[in-house]
């Protein structure tokens, strides 16, 4: 086993054991923090697919997080007020069922990613960064002006949505569900990175001309990666909304896009578990430093600056050494 594989195994063990300890020690708040970390990790795993593998520096991934969140908010708010979403041409009712909400979140964010991607992937480099950031702001302002679903105040969902066979109101059961989703997505991403598509995408990042020369279209490879990436982050948004039982325009904010990217950098770019390690570390810092000082973002900024300038590769890079191309 490589050192990175050992680290990954330790991380998974920690994600399973710490919340179980928290149940035993009766520390429900620790479980909530762990759930937050796992859901944010899922959002960053989505971005890591575009950023690490595809080299697409998207500074607007909060869009998909927000779309996923609002898919949940809209469906659940109609269900809790017993009003249909639309009656014509077909009757569509709200729902409190997580599997349906997840499916809608994934499809909706994938569609939005397809539209944003097909405009912004026509460009590259700084243009791409600025455009994704701008589209994020567009959705932020749109939801603020969208009075039908709460506008600036957002939407509260009073009871957490249900999953067949589980009582999602019990913190550890909801946590387990989120962890399983994260692990399934990680297995999927790992398989994707080794698949012909993943190899071609990786090649398109390093040498687009050569990829084109062998008859593959870098634009299409990137667009597919962007859509899958957006769909994963959208699913994370739906889970996050269920954790908070609240959605608001801040789910679309540029700060959140930046933070999702920060998770990846703290953990390690293009590492399978980089986003997970980063999100866990971020939530722990937020909890501890946030308890020490109201201005903990200053320290986060200094830490981030230090990592970018002096410790490229993040925590996993420091612990596991240089990445091997494929092990």
């Amino acid at each position: 086993m490589s050192r990175e594989a050992v680290i990954n195994a330790v991380v998974v063990a920690g994600l399973v054991l710490v919340p179980l300890w928290a149940v035993w020690a009766d520390e429900p708040f620790t479980i909530t923090l762990a759930t937050r970390a796992v859901v944010l990790a899922l959002a960053a795993v989505g971005l890591n697919l575009a950023l690490g593998l595809g080299g697409l520096v998207s500074l607007g991934h909060a869009v998909f997080f927000g779309i996923g969140g609002y898919a949940m908010g809209v469906l659940a708010s109609h269900a809790q007020s017993y009003t249909p979403l639309m009656e014509w041409p077909v009757l569509i009712e709200g729902t409190k069922s997580m599997p349906i909400i997840w499916l809608v979140s994934i499809v909706a964010s994938a569609l939005v990613a397809l539209v944003i991607g097909s405009v912004s992937l026509r460009t590259s480099g700084v243009y791409f960064i600025m455009i994704t950031l701008a589209f994020g702001q567009m959705f932020f302002f749109f939801t603020i002006s969208w009075a039908a679903y709460g506008g600036e105040d957002g939407l509260s969902i009073y009871v957490r949505n249900g999953f067949p066979g589980l009582n999602t109101l019990v913190p550890i059961q909801f946590y387990g569900l989120c962890l399983v989703v994260l692990l399934v997505v990680l297995v999927f991403c790992s398989a994707l990175a080794r698949s012909p598509f993943g190899l071609a995408l990786n090649a398109a990042r390093q040498a687009p001309e050569r990829v084109q020369a062998v008859g593959l279209d870098p634009f299409r490879l990137r667009l597919v990666a962007f859509v899958i990436s957006g769909a994963i982050t959208g699913l994370a948004g739906a889970l996050f909304a269920d954790l908070a039982r609240f959605v608001s325009p801040t789910m679309f904010s540029w700060q959140l896009s930046g933070e999702i990217m920060v998770f990846i950098i703290i953990g390690g770019v293009a590492r399978l578990f980089g986003p997970v390690v980063g999100a866990v570390l971020f939530v722990m810092l937020e909890h501890w430093l946030g308890g020490l000082s109201d201005y903990w973002h200053v320290f986060l900024g200094l830490l981030l600056l230090g990592i970018v300038l002096f410790a490229k590769g993040g925590l996993i890079g420091v612990l596991a050494g240089k990445a091997r191309a494929h092990d």
Partner: peptide, 14 residues
Amino acid sequence: HLDQVLATFALILI
């Protein structure tokens, strides 16, 4: 560009 984005994002926080 990724490093530039992150370092200047860190500056915003600070």
